[in-house]
Amino acid sequence: MRAPAPVDGGGHSRSIGALGERFFLQIAAWPALIVMIFVTAVPFAITIGLAFTNYDLVRGMDGWRFVGLDNFGELLRDRQTPIVIVNTIYLVLATTFIPTIVGLGLAVLMERSFRGVGIVRTLYLLPIMTAPVVVALTWRAMFHNDAGWINYGLSVLGLPTPVWLGDPTLAMPVVIIADAWTSVPFQAILILAALLTVPRELKEAAAVDGAGRASTFWHITLPWIRPVLLVVIVLRFMDAFRKFEGIQQLTGGGPGLASTPINLQIYNTGLYYHRVGYAAAWGLVMIAMIAASLLIVYLVRRRWS
């Protein structure tokens, strides 16, 4: 049934218009908020709740109950816990600082000696934009023991050819090398952009005062780009915790647990072994680790500035 047209249609729409005018910013912002509540806040709340249950994917809704702090007690006893946490710290530190230092070096070289910076920059953007799963599978082929290009190159040079993907001590370095292929260019490009903002007069003045290149870099350039360095380090931190397919499709977290960091462990626990409650407890550990690393960054920043 159609409602009769309002007699005073103009007034009605004018009041809606006035409301829209008054609350325009809320109306613009709230759809985003509603979606975020639906896809992040609610799941996050559920994760917190699940961490205190024995919820299991196979049993489903039947037979789950609150188990208090049992999951956390198990975490403390679990022999995998220290391995996974050490792996995570290793991975986060290595994939943050190695690419930052190498990237800084490349950026300095690009800034001072190359005319074709534009071409190099375009070339460096490509690995950053390439789907991580493609990167992981390609490096898996490159690292293949017999048919891979890396061992072929090493054997041509007469060097030893390690079993890259089967050796527990090499699994993590393999992940770090494949990661560096995208994260070194990432750091280099952003640091180069910062280097290009260092005022030329500042460096010239230092040179006039008799400072050498190294000294100018240490006392003028580095302090100038310090805020950007902090930003790119935080970005790497955040990415390191996200890194999933780069490990799952490259080493599968193995051999054994040799290259399993916390996010892969959460996935394995929850969706492979179906122990959702225990996986949620791992999830809270991960959030604590992220919070701790951000706190450290914050403290460093306060000391530096």
Partner: peptide
């Protein structure tokens, strides 16, 4: 949400 990786949200 930008800081927390998707693995935290994905199971729920």
């Amino acid at each position: 949400s930008r800081m927390v990786p998707p693995v935290i949200f994905i199971i729920p």
